[in-house]
Design a protein around this nucleic acid. Structure first.
Lengths: 205, 205
DNA sequence: TTATAAAATAAACATCATGTTCAGGATTTT
DNA sequence: AAAATCCTGAACATGATGTTTATTTTATAA
């Protein structure tokens, strides 16, 4: 008969936030495997036992921290891709939305894409992108496809997700001097027009 | 005055091979972080202390195991890209060479691309591909590029490497039913011709 | 404001993986 | 066969993990 408490105790959310922040900072400093739970609680200024009141182990904390970002990305992109908006002109390019999201969370995406800690999150993000791409190829682009595709749309969507993750990794790790919108443009050009035209190849392979 | 021994003691190479094989098998079973050093030596049927006679820690063993593959890939691809061969017809597509290499070492590449264990190796392989691609864009393709490229060749080479790693990950993880040569074809088509033509889009974005 | 419920804490403990040392026994090399 | 090298098991120190308990601190709701 007991009802679920309306919202979390203020201490709980504060503690969890401190733990998440501490873990992220420490991963960026030393890498995931070089961080102990005591490191985390020290940095967060909490007792070590407190950690176990909230998380089973380091992985669980990591996943929770990164899942939040993945969910945020999903929400932002889905809104652009599938939502019917009255004013088509105001609808933003969903790829640009994603690149902006990455730009605003560079630290977290570096952690995710470097594969620090379980690669589950990277794989989840890949799937989110793939889904959005498939949806995009199926609906908003439908009327522009006259003939059947030369390769299955699902394959192209999978490739889109993988290539985009790869490009984002490149962008972040090599510190390419592009804004989110510019990076999105470059990627779209390479992806849709193909490298042959970008390189001005006279004949194709 | 002591000279370096001509080659390794037979026991040493046997022991190291056993350790490498055991680690690879165990990673595929449980994932890198779930493998202890005792697990490895048990599986390899060796004493635990023996491990430390050869490697400082798990990472060192992993790196050595995977570096061998990276070197092998590099050797095979470089031979095709830069070596001047008399018979141009016999020269294999270097991308197909790489895809065949992956196909023949699926297990190892799965470990590498999933980011199990240090991501250094994946990053090294990426760099190897990028170098080869840049070399390829600069020399064998030089006469086919009439105008200057719309984007720097180095950027396109970086994108090539990232996209190819992504595509290979897709190929292996989703178990796409392509042979090495077929996968290479699909990837080359997507990369050079671009998704717009593959999807038969009437206009471009 | 205060009583009550919930959360944080430090201390103590058991367990496990790591990495080192050492004296032996086993295998290769010369 | 002798010498050199490697493997082994036992013992040990260390450090991280995860749990329990009694106590103190803090938030919530009356």
């Amino acid at each position: 008969m007991n009802t679920v408490p309306a919202r979390l105790d203020r201490r709980v959310s504060r503690t969890r936030r401190q733990l998440r922040d501490a873990l992220m900072a420490l991963i960026l400093e030393r890498g995931y495997n070089m961080v102990t739970i005591e490191d985390i609680t020290d940095r967060a200024d909490l007792g070590r036992t407190t950690f176990y009141l909230h998380y089973r182990d380091k992985d669980e904390l990591l996943i929770e921290s990164l899942e939040a970002i993945a969910q945020d990305l999903k929400a932002q992109v889905e809104q652009q891709v599938s939502q019917q908006m009255e004013d088509r002109q105001l609808r933003l390019n969903p790829v640009a939305v994603a690149f902006r999201h990455v730009d605003e969370n560079r630290d977290l995406y570096q952690i995710i894409l470097k594969g620090e800690g379980s690669s589950k999150v990277a794989s989840r993000i890949r799937d989110i992108i793939e889904e959005a791409a498939l949806e995009f190829f199926t609906h908003p682009l439908r009327d522009r496809m006259v003939d059947p595709p030369q390769l299955p749309k699902t394959l192209v969507a999978g490739y889109f997700a993988s290539a985009m993750m790869g490009f984002v990794t490149l962008w972040l790790e090599k510190g390419l001097p592009y804004s989110g919108d510019e990076a999105a443009d470059v990627f779209m050009t390479l992806f849709f027009r193909g490298a042959a035209r970008v390189l001005n190849l006279t004949i194709e392979l």
